[in-house]
Amino acid sequence: MKRHLISATDLSHDDAVLILDTAEEMGRIADRPIKKLPTLRGRTVVNLFFEDSTRTRISFEAAAKRLSADVINFSAKGSSVSKGESLKDTALTLQAMGADAVVIRHHDSGAPHRLATSGWIGGSVVNAGDGTHEHPTQALLDAYTIRRRLAAAGAAGTDLAGRRITIVGDILHSRVARSNVHLLHTLGAEVTVVAPPTLVPIGVEHWPCAVSYDLDAVLPKSDAVMMLRVQRERMNAAYFPTEREYARRYGLNGDRMARMPGHAIVMHPGPMNRGMEITAEVADSPRCTAVEQVTNGVSVRMAVLYLLLGGAEPAATKETHE
């Protein structure tokens, strides 16, 4: 594995399967009375969040703490960043404090890449979502959820070969979609993105996926349907005429869910816009994995931090070499 996790394209097939397998092990720890491993004791993980995202932040925080790392939460709001401090100076500050890993959420596409390649910090950088670029740990937890649900027991070591995954919604602005298209393709799945043409990026023809504007045509051929959050404000920029029209054409309701194969699951990265891209009936059905995805998120992020920071060797052995 590379030293940083910036993009789903940083991961080879074997890297991705290793992370999913490691996450399985981590998941078993969550079932224990004491949900903690000593692996990253003495290591410092900084959650550097330039954008509000309580869900992702606490997921990373829980993951790091279960590995016994020291966690520092650095939120841009109310900090020196809101007083105009540059990303560079923030990074230098974190470096001076001895951060072993920086988990960064940023409103600008490419900010984690800059952080990792600019020489400002020495630790590993984990992209927790940058602008409209990528959100690789979300894609990993989605892949993990799909594998668990569809392969059931004995999932370890397997990929998603032949699985048909449909991603529906604001593909243009979605970092979740970009990371999932790459990762699921790497894992052998057949990915289709579905959206109104206004929400599909120019240049999508080079993505490793199919594109459809017709949700109903794709649903019967889907093993998993991932519904993306669609911001109501997009309507104001004329990406679609009204919320109701969007919901009618691209929302997932009970009737549509009934057209999916019996084994197929419904996914959502959250937070959900009930009534917009997903109806309450679907969101609350047992086929919807939204809550499970949150649980899996902690396991997957534990796996990522463990593999980036701890590596394959136990931390104690490594210390004797240093």
């Binding site: 490419g110 409209t132 970009r178 120019i202 240049g203």
Partner: peptide, 18 residues
């Protein structure tokens, strides 16, 4: 707009300048 709109902008998630 942040960069030329096309294949690369689609991948990088930067707003396109068509």
């Amino acid at each position: 707009a942040q960069m030329n709109e096309g294949t690369v902008s689609a991948e990088l998630g930067l707003t396109g300048w068509p």
